[in-house]
């Protein structure tokens, strides 16, 4: 195992997060594009597993494209990722404002008014910034469920960042094998809180089931739907994508309901997951360059 000091410099190590904070507080805004461009080239070569995963996913999302084209698309995806984490750090440390427009305003308003709801999102666009903006706009606390970071120091840094950027309104909960989390989330929803979950990637030891995405059988987490079923809370698909420099689009889609009276639990959840995967597919088709799924999702891509 690599020594502790060396792990800081791994791709997911805390050093790069701290360096990002240094960058956004020191680099004049007009030099950020040049800086981010060259750092993307650096990480394109260094972060090989992430690059391979994006490439593998792109083969399914954009079939028929040449290998070179997909390499370019992978670079574009990593470049967008660099921008989104830089923007989130900029918001946290410098209080930089971002312009955003809303697609599906009525669904966002419904979510803002809901007494207990699930905000279902994906590893897409700037989900961290989105949670902070949502919490501030509707003056409501939000509990964000995340996959634990591999590096403890990075996890602590990210937790602090999220809670700071959300002005204390964003609380982080980790998706582990513990049975305490579902009960904690259920209690939070019942007291009227909004719980944000990423539903585009299965997590080891967490409940999941098969559904279809881009004509492929994939495994996606079914936890959000079971939670929606038990708590009888609506599930709102919501994404925040980068449209231009310091500009974002919040995409809110119609809520998905998992109602007990609609039949057997398994059938209701399977139908809800189908609706979610359709929504996810539509958004990924348009914003494929902002789907930051750095693990292969599709079985064919894994092989």
């Amino acid at each position: 195992m690599a020594p502790q000091w060396w792990r800081r410099f791994a791709v997911r190590g805390v050093f790069w997060r701290q360096y990002l904070d240094f960058g956004v507080t020191n680099v004049p805004f007009y030099l950020l594009p040049v800086t981010i461009f060259f750092w993307t080239i650096f990480f394109f070569f260094v972060a090989a597993p992430a690059r391979r995963a994006v490439l593998a996913n792109l083969r399914i999302i954009r079939p028929g494209a040449s290998r070179l084209t997909n390499y370019f698309r992978t670079f574009l995806t990593l470049h967008n990722f660099a921008w989104t984490i830089a923007d989130a750090a900029d918001h946290k440390l410098a209080g930089t404002e971002f312009a955003y427009e809303v697609e599906g305003e009525e669904f966002l308003t419904q979510l803002g008014r809901a007494h207990g709801a699930i905000l279902l999102t994906a590893h897409m666009g700037n989900y961290d910034l989105g949670a902070a903006i949502f919490a501030q706009r509707f003056d409501r606390p939000i509990r964000m469920v995340r996959v634990p970071e591999a590096d403890e120091q990075t996890a602590a840094h990210l937790d602090a960042s999220l809670e700071r950027s959300g002005g204390g309104a964003v609380k982080v909960a980790y998706n582990t094998s513990s049975m305490a989390l579902p009960l904690e989330l259920l209690a939070a929803i019942r007291t009227g809180e909004i719980v944000s979950i990423q539903g585009d990637r299965p997590v080891a030891h967490a409940s999941q089931r098969e559904t279809r995405l881009f004509q492929q059988v994939v495994r996606l987490p079914d936890g959000p739907f079971m939670l929606g079923f038990v708590a009888e809370a609506p599930i709102f698909p919501l994404f925040i994508v980068r449209t231009s420099y310091h500009r974002y689009r919040v995409i809110a889609r119609p809520p998905i309901h998992c109602r007990r009276e609609e039949g057997d639990r398994n059938v209701v959840i399977a139908e809800a997951m189908e609706r979610w995967s359709q929504t996810l597919e539509e958004v990924i088709t348009t914003y494929w360059a902002q789907w930051f799924s750095f693990v292969p999702i599709f079985p064919r891509a894994k092989g």
């Binding site: 805004f29 007009y30 950020l32 594009p33 312009a99 231009s244 420099y245 310091h246 500009r247």
Partner: peptide
Amino acid sequence: AEWSALETYG
């Protein structure tokens, strides 16, 4: 506000 791509990239 720093919202102009033209200004920033230019």
